[in-house]
Design a protein around this nucleic acid. Structure first.
Lengths: 331, 331
DNA sequence: GTGAAAGCGCTAACAC
DNA sequence: GTGTTAGCGCTTTCAC
């Protein structure tokens, strides 16, 4: 069913139909009403493809989950923030009359056909020199990032929790609880998340003239990776506290430490920068920063929508996360 | 950048470009190669909208989460199976060169423009007489359902875990553990999930000549709803076991029972038909059926892809779930 | 106030 | 082998 059919049934031209349905042009109120009634009765709905072809906007934005691209697994357990973020982004998009399309790594074949016809993109946790971002840039497709794009200090269109503040809060908390030597366990993706935390941590160490003890553990290593790492950490000297950027690593490290006979929280405290099921379910439950994907998604869609409309939206926007203290750091 | 630009640069007609890039028509290998090289060099990528307009397939399928539509919340906590299902469906779609678009309730305005241009749909847990399904039917858009469409026994294009088998398994387990009187706590959405479990439960009761004790609790009531319901259940007479269809309800009911002084698992067993964080994290951990959204998503995409291609795919397809026994039913 | 017609970028008959 | 051309369904300019 096309405009033509509606036009024929309503006894008008296709122009009239288009105008009536889009509230454009100069039609008499009567004609407009009549056409609308006929279209409704027929259950007519404009073809999004054809409309998009003309308007060159298709009413949908893409979502690129870079961390999951890197992980190679779109159904990971305990990556709370992304699972929540997808839902949040979807409902926020919906509320604005946009659809949300999950798009895989654009630099790997096969690229889904509609990928380059999206009105805009949300990119989560882009990497340093992220090729996907470069691709969007090159095609001048508007995009926003969840977490800053590292290496692009001038790119303003991002939203994120205040990672710097929460990292400082966690370190301060550990210090208050008596920790002097704190180990940082970070991931290997070169994204802003890892970089910011490392910066804050190094600054903290510098201020206290303690030697930084950083360990890198691939995001994909999960809980098991954390368990193994714990043995290494313990062998290098049991620290007063371990701050893990991911909840899975934290759960693993804690389990590993206890397996080595290190009491948590008795001897060593454990905290994580990203709450997840593993953190909550661990024994003892692990203190964690609860991120705020819902507010972040809302902010990102505000910005993106402005960008698509050709405006100069207010950006960046920082959202609030919450540090939740649990057993693992309570004395 | 369009076919025209590529054609001009390559010194050929636009037809040649189209054919070369789509592997159609009769072009000399040399021309084909040359055109491909030029297109690559220019970074040309066909416009999905225009292509879709001609081919009337756009390389994307829609995902309708009916349970979340009903819940009115696309970012619910502890609805594991959906969070996982979205990821699984996305990666399965991707593996087939399709994108996945999250689409909100099609019967509620505003409907996103591309909604009716999708090649097909996956509908999770449709309701009895689901208006969204009716809409797809009317527009003859191919669709598959995760969980049968109740009231449509002849509709074959669905995939699902074997709910009947797992329900029987849970009941048998509870019985073996000594339970004689078992209460069923189900949701209020009129979907196949609720209906199948009720059937199995009633049949079980009938075989043992015990009187069914069914309680309905809205899916949205969550843990708190379960806590309140527990008081009612206890007041009606403490049963030997409670079988809750959702993990949140189970967690709430268990907490509520213990608050009433009913020991779990000492006096009453608690189990759930849908594992979730709440079930795993409860004290004691709750025995649960672990659903299989990954295999189900794969099966659904197989079927849907066949349907889109105009074939008669093998369907329905039943996937395996797993009953995991935890503290709440161990004696 | 209304409608004819051009054209968005692409594909596929059908000439050449 | 290669190119011309007619649309796909829609919006929009511009005559009437």
């Amino acid at each position: 069913m096309t405009v033509k059919d509606v036009a024929r049934r309503a006894g008008v031209s296709i122009t009239a139909v288009s105008h009536a349905l889009n509230g454009k042009g100069t039609l008499s109120a009567a004609t407009r009403e009549h056409i609308r009634a006929v279209a409704d009765a027929m259950g007519y709905e404009a073809d999004a493809l054809a409309r998009g072809l003309r308007r060159s906007t298709m009413g949908a934005v893409g979502l690129l989950l870079r961390s999951l691209d890197a992980l190679g697994d779109y159904t990971p357990a305990g990556v709370d923030v992304f699972e929540k973020f997808v839902g949040a982004a979807a409902s926020q998009a919906l509320a604005r009359g946009l659809s949300l399309m999950l798009v895989p790594d654009l630099t790997r074949a096969p690229v889904p056909p509609p990928a380059f016809s999206m009105d805009g993109y949300i990119v989560t946790n882009p990497h340093v020199d992220d090729p996907v971002v470069a691709l969007l840039e090159k095609r001048s497709i508007p995009y926003v990032t969840y977490g800053r794009a590292p290496g692009r200090p001038d790119f303003p269109y991002w939203a994120c929790e205040d990672d710097t503040a929460s990292a400082q809060q966690v370190l301060a908390h550990l210090e208050t609880a008596g920790a002097r030597e704190i180990v940082l366990v970070q991931g290997t993706d070169p994204n802003s998340w890892n970089l910011v935390h490392e910066d804050v941590y190094r600054a903290w160490c510098a201020r206290r003239a303690t030697t930084p003890r950083l360990y890198e553990l691939a995001e994909g290593a999960g809980v098991e990776g954390g368990v193994e790492l714990a043995a290494r950490i313990a062998a290098d000297g049991v620290p007063d506290a371990v701050f893990c950027l991911t909840g899975r690593h934290a759960a693993g490290v804690q389990r590993g430490l206890r397996a080595c006979g290190v009491d948590v929280p008795g001897r060593t405290l454990v905290a994580t920068a990203s709450d997840s099921e593993h953190a909550r379910g661990a024994q003892p439950a692990i203190s964690a920063v609860v991120l705020n994907p819902v507010d972040s998604a809302a902010a990102l869609l505000d910005i993106l929508q402005g960008l698509i409309a050709g405006e100069r939206p207010e950006a960046p926007r920082v959202t609030k996360s919450l540090f939740r203290v649990r057993e693992s750091t309570r004395r």
